[in-house]
Write a protein that binds this DNA or RNA. Sequence first.
DNA 1: GCGACGATTTCG
DNA 2: GAAATCGTCGCT
Length: 202
Amino acid sequence: MDRGLSFLSAPASAIPETAKRLLGWEVSANGVTVRLTEVEAYAGTGEDAASHAHRGPTPRTQVMFGPAGRAYVYFVFGMHWCLNVVCGPEGEASAVLLRAGEVIGGVDVARERRGDAPARELARGPARLVKTLGIGPDANGTSMVDGSGPLRLSPPSRPVPPDAVEAGPRVGVAGAHDIPWRFWISGDPTVSAYRRHSPRKR
DNA sequence: GCGACGATTTCG
DNA sequence: GAAATCGTCGCT
């Protein structure tokens, strides 16, 4: 893996650092380019109660155990899709959830998919980001780094200074509130709002 | 086979 | 605050 992407394959224990380094990277698909402003790190089996891979591999999480640089796309709440970049060595599950970004290319195309929304809200939230990119379940398991799939991950046009990165608890997770594995660019208007997990009513 | 529960968004 | 809406996974 070239183009400065080798850090994606770092050991799963380094997943928070890997997530941080993805801020400012650009994701392109179907005519839209998004600059990542908010991400979350998820570790593998037994290490992270909030990770889909926490209890070991399942049919859904198979791709998380594969090589780094592939897309892990999952369905949530009966209506939304979310996109992760699979990280770590093959066999170890870890991934970075792409939570939000700034649309820096193809704003008109993004608007067609998202409807009339302020520019900063086009990719503000993981499901909105997926919709803006025009991808879906077909992208699950495809490479984001070799051009063979609809997605392409590229280095930042502008670097993000390390001191511009803030960290906090992940959004909407049921447990592991003590783990500050959500990272975002400080003060960026495209970063989504923090919401704590809300249990369903009986 | 069944049922509880989401790494969310949108509307009221 | 609460609904919408359905695939997944563990088994109450």
